[in-house]
């Protein structure tokens, strides 16, 4: 098992390297970080030159890349190209914010999704099952940003109007009230609610369907029939035999999804102006700040790779038929 893990990690390193080269190339070819400066008529050409030299932009592409790479692997992520903020600081802050949103939405979705899926399977073809299925279909088909906009309209406009509220129940933008200091839990929750719901809804649709299908397969399995034939109590049959097996595919999928949270919230954060990794990414793609963009990509990839590995390990732990050499 240990060798398996090491081998996987080793293979990932070249992947990360290749990805960084690709991203750098695209950015280098398509964005000129000095553009903002260049078009400013009050800055002389000589100054522009100096600016570019300071940022190291007058070197060749590969030279810039390897200079960056050299620093990167030593852990020196340096500063943003445009401001004096440290790259690691910016990314860390954004990551924390994204994780707060992501983990909240994810947890809600997992708990609800699994529950709904199990009930739908045990009461197959019932009204509940029908509603759950329809709901999942709609949730999977609805454009997430549209859904988010509707929520914003609802909470930010209609409810305020109809209920004559001073403030919306749940806020529609940002992570905290502008200008606030300190940590106010209630305020945070009111800001977190809507984006978390938007995230959760998509995941619930997937998890409930997975759980339902998995549970149905297990409910019709031979070993469940054997368990009943043994005279085991129905509750234990469902939990100890049914769910124990049905949860396996979900667990691995959930682990994979967790890995995707780092970089997967771009649209949600854009709509709700949540200052997370997604917002950071959009910003640096606009201005070409590869000092941030490259570590960003590497970090999100690393997340995905590590959690995919976790998923595989979990699978082996949960299912004794799978054991890696």
């Amino acid at each position: 098992m240990l060798r398996f893990i090491l081998r996987r990690l080793l293979i990932s390193v070249p992947l990360l390297f290749v990805a960084s080269v690709l991203v750098f190339t695209v950015l280098h070819l398509t964005i000129d970080p000095a553009a903002g400066v260049r078009v400013n008529p009050r800055i002389s050409a000589a100054d522009v030159q100096r600016y570019r030299h300071d940022l190291g932009l007058d070197r060749s592409g590969p030279a810039q890349y390897f200079a960056w790479l050299g620093n990167f692997v030593q852990g020196k992520w340096g500063h943003s190209l445009f401001s004096s903020t440290s790259v690691s600081g910016e990314i860390r802050e954004a990551l924390v914010n994204s994780m707060v949103l992501g983990v909240t939405g994810f947890t809600i979705a997992l708990l609800l999704g699994v529950t709904i899926g199990v009930i739908a399977a045990v009461r197959q073809y019932s009204v509940f099952d029908y509603l759950a299925t329809s709901g999942a279909f709609v949730a999977l088909s609805i454009p997430v940003f549209w859904f988010a906009l509707i929520l914003q309209l609802l909470f930010g406009l209609y409810l305020v109007r109809w209920l004559h509220l001073e403030q919306p129940i749940f806020y529609t933008a940002g992570m905290v009230q502008p200008g606030s200091v300190g940590f106010d839990l209630l305020d945070r929750v009111r800001h977190l609610a809507l984006p978390a719901v938007v995230l959760a809804v998509q995941l619930i649709a997937v998890y409930s369907r997975y759980m339902r299908a998995s549970m149905l397969e297990v409910l019709n399995s031979d070993y469940l029939r054997t368990a009943r034939a043994k005279g085991v109590r129905e509750r234990r049959v469902i939990v100890h035999h049914g769910m124990r097996n049905a949860l396996i595919p979900i667990t691995t999928q959930a682990a994979i999804d967790l890995g995707g949270l780092a970089g997967g919230l771009i649209a949600t954060e854009a709509i709700f102006q949540w200052p997370g990794m997604g917002a950071l990414f959009v910003r640096v793609m606009d201005n070409g700040d590869y000092a941030i963009a490259l570590p960003w990509v590497m970090l999100t990839m690393a997340f995905v790779i590590v959690f995919n590995l976790v998923a595989d390990i979990l699978y082996a732990v949960l299912d004794p038929r799978i054991r890696y050499a």
């Binding site: 990805a19 695209v26 950015l27 997967g264 771009i266 990414f281």
Partner: peptide, 12 residues
């Protein structure tokens, strides 16, 4: 597939 879909698309 290790890079989030949207990231790949935006870069592309």
């Amino acid at each position: 597939l290790s890079i989030p879909l949207l990231v790949v698309l935006i870069i592309a």
